[in-house]
Design a protein around this nucleic acid. Structure first.
Lengths: 228, 228
DNA sequence: GCAAAAGTGTTCCTTTTACACCCATGC
DNA sequence: GCATGGGTGTAAAAGGAACACTTTTGC
């Protein structure tokens, strides 16, 4: 009576974003060690084990393949076209992740022959439908940053205002008036101004700031909307 | 060498929304015919066949279980907690769908003992984690309607302006000034005003309107943003 | 002619944009 | 002392919110 369903395998993939003010937005890719697409760059990922959550699978695979631990992880979309993997039917739950600059170091391992950061403007050819996944992730990040304070996940804990500003300019792909941006962002009341100043670099050193997570959640509970 | 992965089953579920001005937003649920949760209301859905796309699986299951055909379908989120199904590990790709009032008629079939519309304010107890899925779908719909013109998928092809207005009031859960709303919406330039007037009903009959999809996509291509 | 809903315009206020000058530091 | 980037305020413009009166229909 029960219909016999041929099995479908399930994997997770993760688009990991990093940011450096002078290099822009980068994505962590691995070079595949096995066929199909052996030697081609791909988004890290792998099979989900039967007793682990999807998020756990993502974190585990990222650690195994690239040695990285991310500080922000969110589901992006599930890709399930019958022919997206040439071997067999695979449904992949894609995530995107953000990492802070101080854990930028990666080391290839496991199924990866290499692991490297690529600027999102200069991507190599990608395996499977990973180009499409990556594009969707970039689109999502651009959007997300406009209505949720996720940008901080790409910055150091303490950062000069100019880095936040540059991050938004980079993601929006256009110039944003420095003064108006600062006015608006500060008026949200979710940044702590620190006593420290930014050392090194040219010009007048600016004060450092820190994201005030508690304040943000207080305001959010009150129904105040982040929008930038 | 290859690790043996115990299999995970994959299903699709669909939160189907309908709207009637005097009844508000409703959701289509089915009464389960089998265990687990036999006799409990649930979101329609089922297993994905190995050679069909996820969207196809959703449409097929909806047709089988409830007899309905939807005119808008979008992926919501993938739920994959190890214990979300008491029998075995199941990852479910959830969708949400919108139907127009004229195909509101449903007939239970297949695995469903019953299929009924429930107002989203008066939901019964639901099987599995379906309450959570439904809440997420409602949240998503509320949001979506603010930045994409999906509201029309819940209205008849020709509708009086008041219905569009009421739909937004219902979803936003608050009053919206009728005149400002109309001014803003019409200024988007994506509505065709028809010669026909709304027949029946109380008060002065209003003109009927129609969503101008072509115009919308033209404007979208130009970078003009829908926001209401 | 009364109740109900639709059509329409103006004013006020808030938010956004545009823009310029001075200040602190490194070399 | 000069180049570089940081800090700050104001005025004009645009967009959003508040609001009232007239018109068309059914009963």
């Amino acid at each position: 009576m029960a219909k016999e369903y041929p099995r479908i395998d399930i994997t997770v993939d993760a688009v990991v974003f990093g940011y450096k003010p002078d290099e822009g937005i980068s994505v962590l890719l691995i070079k595949r060690k096995k066929d199909p697409f052996k030697g081609t760059w791909a988004i890290p990922g792998g099979f989900v084990e039967v007793d682990e959550s999807l998020e756990h699978a993502v974190s585990r695979e990222l650690k195994e393949e690239t040695g990285i631990e991310v500080n922000y992880l969110e589901q992006l979309y599930t890709f399930g076209e019958p022919k997206r993997d040439p071997r067999k039917r695979i449904v992949s739950v894609a995530y995107y992740a953000l990492v802070k600059p101080d854990i930028y170091e990666v080391h290839a391992a496991d199924d990866a022959e290499g692991a490297e950061w690529f600027n999102i403007e200069k991507l190599p050819k990608l395996a499977f439908d990973h180009k499409y996944i990556l594009e969707m992730a970039i689109f999502r990040l651009r959007n997300k940053i406009s209505y949720e304070p996720v940008g901080f996940e790409l910055l150091d804990k303490h950062f000069p205002f100019s880095e936040l500003h540059k991050l938004y300019e980079t993601l929006y792909g256009k110039e944003i008036d420095r003064r108006n941006f600062k006015k608006k962002f500060l008026s949200l009341g979710i940044l702590k101004e620190l006593k420290e100043k930014n050392s090194g670099g040219k010009g007048r050193p600016g004060l450092l700031y820190q994201f005030d997570k508690d304040k943000y959640f207080q305001l959010k509970k009150k129904g105040i909307v982040f929008e930038i």
